[in-house]
Amino acid sequence: MVLQQLSNGLTLGMVYALIAVGYSLVFGILRLVNFSHGSVYAFGAHMAMLFVSMQFGIIPAFILSIVLTGILGIAIDKMALAPLRAKKSKGIAALITTIGISYIIQNVLMITFGSQTKFFPKLFDFGSIYIGGVAFNTTQICISGVSLMLLLILSCVIRYTKVGLAMRAVEQNQKAANLMGIDVNFVVTFTFFLGGASAAIAGTLISGYYQIVYPNMGFVAGLKAFSAAVLGGIGVLYGSIFGGLVVGISESFAAAYLGGSYRDAVAFLILIIVLLIKPTGLFGKKGITKV
């Protein structure tokens, strides 16, 4: 029972981590909480569903969804946020804009796909495997594995590639990054692409797990992933991963031992406690509002 809950929690946590990373990346570069991210995640899930229903096969559907959702991320920045930055408007304007965009995306999904809950085919179902008498669900293993792999790839891109170095430079000092000849706009675009792409992956994985898709599926998932990001220290990648796992595991234990009505509340309770003790989050850096 405990192992089972742990496994459920780890699976959810890995996916939350994948969404949380999107909040964290954008926050790192722009000091902006992108509240449209939950809807971007829902968009990714719907795209995957659309292409699956068009008989593309699950892998091509996955890839198309990743690319399109990444492009949606870029479009959000180019059409709504970049003009605000160009006018040097206040951060709050951008924040409210992202909330507005969130509703626009949700409504477009509703108009296009209908607001009802739709079926999504099960991903990676190879039955259970038994190790030492304990049953492991292959769906969970695969979802965790895919998420972990993508998180590792993302970390490697940021740590070891030239564009990753540029991202870290822009995160720390935009003016100096500019002086180095870094195209800051390109870095922002690339970051939004990564955020959108990882949200699409998370959306597809979760839809395959629960086998349902609906337009405002991103609301609660987005909030939880956001708390995961804040919990770990927003802007810190491994913090988001850790935060995602904490939120996922606490949710699954709360659902099992306290009852289903507590499953969503526990994540926020933990968040509040952590912020009271350490306002920058567990791995948060001080002075992050500089720039």
Partner: peptide
């Protein structure tokens, strides 16, 4: 920068969380 002008700005403006080597690498970014 590509044309051959570079600036060491007032107040240093180094990238504090990056290593010395990474800071230098960024100087050669273009």
């Amino acid at each position: 920068v590509k044309m051959g002008i570079s600036l060491s700005p007032e107040g240093r403006e180094v990238f504090p969380a990056l290593t010395v080597e990474e800071n230098l690498q960024l100087g050669a970014f273009t």
